[in-house]
Each structure stands twice: as C-alpha cells, then as structure tokens.
Amino acid sequence: MSAPSTSQQEKMVTGFWPWFLQRVSGFLLIFLVGVHIWMTHFSGLGDVVRGHQEELVLFEIVKQRLAQGLFIFIDFSLLALVLYHGLNGMRNILLEWGPAARHAAGMTTGLWLLGVVTFIYGAWALLAFIL
C-alpha cells in the first residue's frame, strides 16, 4: 500500500474528522505553543541574564504565572490539544502500516485511552501549581 499523496487520499485513510481536527488543533497550537515557549524561555531571559532571577523556570515562577486565569486556560488547552494532535499524528502514521491498519479500531481506542490517561496525569501535575 502506498502512502497517501494528496489530502483527498489522506482524508479517506484517516476519516474526515481526524483529518479536519488535525488541521484545527495544529492551527491553534501555533499560538498556544508560541505563547508557552515565549513565556517559559524568553520573557524572563533579561532578568536571568541581569542576575535578578536565578533560573527561567522555578516552582514559584510557574506558580505565579498559573495564578492568572488566562494561563490556567492556556496550559490546560495546550495539554489537551497537543495530546490530541500528537497522538492523532501517530495514528495517521500507523494507519499507513498494514499490521496496524488491520487493527485500526483497537489502535484508535488504545490511543484515546493513552491520551485521556496522560491528560489526567498532566492536569494532576499542573494542579500542583494551582491548588
């Protein structure tokens, strides 16, 4: 079986909704990942370089950021969307491989399970800074 060469073929292999939601989640992630990397890596850079702050990321710094509702919303959205996008991408790759494609339904269920469990674990980790 050859890999899909166009979006039309890709849609037929993966199904319309996974194809469509991969685009939507990818588009949203450009902004969410952008803000995430900017806030964690670059917004505090000046303070670290000038010695006002020991490191870019420390417990107290994350805690202060997550005291703002906007960042709680951003981080939980990011966690959910990045898991969906990443695992859906893995599904796209696996579906082109015969042995996995023959068990597509089971594989999809397994990936959903992995995603939900990882989301709960990640949310539990984030709540350490919030509650």
Binding site: F59, L79, V82, L87, T118, Y121, A125, A128
Partner: peptide, 15 residues
C-alpha cells in the same frame, strides 16, 4: 511526541 511525554513527566515532579 516523544519530547511531550518526557516534558509532562518532568513537570509532574512538582507533585
């Protein structure tokens, strides 16, 4: 995707 799982594991040390 590999990095994502490592990243979540690292952040969960906050617990």
């Amino acid at each position: 995707v590999g990095y994502l799982f490592l990243h979540i594991a690292v952040i969960s040390t906050a617990r």
